[in-house]
Design a protein around this nucleic acid. Sequence first.
DNA 1: CCGTCATCTGTAACACAGTTACAGCAGACC
DNA 2: GGTCTGCTGTAACTGTGTTACAGATGACGG
Lengths: 211, 211
Amino acid sequence: MASGARGALTREAVLEAAAGLVRRRGPDALTMRGLAAELGTAVTSIYWHVGGREALLDALVERTVAGLGEIRPSGRTPEQRVLSVARALRRQLRDHPHLVALVHERGLTERMFLPAQRVLVREAHAAGLRGARAAEFVRAVQFQVVGHVLVERNRERAPAQHPGEPELWRAGSAGDDPALARALARPVDTERLFVTAVRALVRSLLAPHGV
Amino acid sequence: MASGARGALTREAVLEAAAGLVRRRGPDALTMRGLAAELGTAVTSIYWHVGGREALLDALVERTVAGLGEIRPSGRTPEQRVLSVARALRRQLRDHPHLVALVHERGLTERMFLPAQRVLVREAHAAGLRGARAAEFVRAVQFQVVGHVLVERNRERAPAQHPGEPELWRAGSAGDDPALARALARPVDTERLFVTAVRALVRSLLAPHGV
DNA sequence: CCGTCATCTGTAACACAGTTACAGCAGACC
DNA sequence: GGTCTGCTGTAACTGTGTTACAGATGACGG
């Protein structure tokens, strides 16, 4: 059963090296040959241990998601607690930028959110939402958080754009509101925007006055 | 200046063929050799006319965005009008699914939204928002719409997930709310969710009572 | 102690991708 | 005619995922 004398390559070692490679140099840098070189072995060993590239990426996603810490709500009101969950989740995803790219590339955004879903369900209940209404609340928050992070990440690696927002709003194209033009020409404060948007959404959905 | 006797390959013809290829078989199917074969020419001609693959994709995005129709708000209240803009934009993006993939791959989500930004600014103004407040409103709606479409598209091409929402919520893991468990085990009605979320966000941000 | 077998590794290839060096063709212009 | 520019084709280079196949290595049964 045992392998050669020296390294005794394991599936875990392969995943570890792959994770390191992705963390340091991004998902595109994860090539089978490069990974083999990093491990000082041959490509075929990797295929034997973890299967092809697809399986490797899937395993990486699973591994990283499992490694994310538990999310604990904090705050008094349900609104505060949900907001804290959203912020924690965004923080986790931003701390693992490669995960977002990986997950999106593989169509697994749902998987990325599952760990937080239970927590949100509890908070929805605590806020008095039940049944389909609660489910819709959880889904709305989920889509907003994940969507925001996707857009955010996307913008960060965006090249120079033509025409970009600065050029577009430089002149008086905003009618008679120079403050607005200035604000739109400035780069986005994504952290602040995130909090504002989530708070607005949550406040509205938790409001008691029916839809 | 003129070319060979027959086709007279032009940059426009190359872009048209590339757009068709992407529309029919997705961005991955757009290979330089495949495109050349479709056009009955050689790869080098494509390089001469439009540059490499990156430039080709950029041109495609530009072309498609330019081809999107104008967005006209409809409805009486600002809330209704903004919601109509959001729905129209989502509809446009969903009618060009390849565009979403292309744009995300190239980090150009901002470019995707620019045509609608002016309209939203006008509506924000009509609703009484000014300056930084209006800018934040526009950005929040922008992030939500684009983010939602990204998540939506991502889910549609998602493979079977382990564990998925159905398995997760099949049992009584939702405490004592079987209706909620059922709702979460069902597939998401993204159209409805989109409207609910955008309306909630807009309503809250347009409310007069300060932050 | 020898043989067999499952496990693991290495060599070398295949098909396909983007890209480009370079030769050649066709019309324009002098 | 000669030359020059615009455009096209051949064939190659590098790098990708993947796999057929031959070995190596150690455990186990006789």
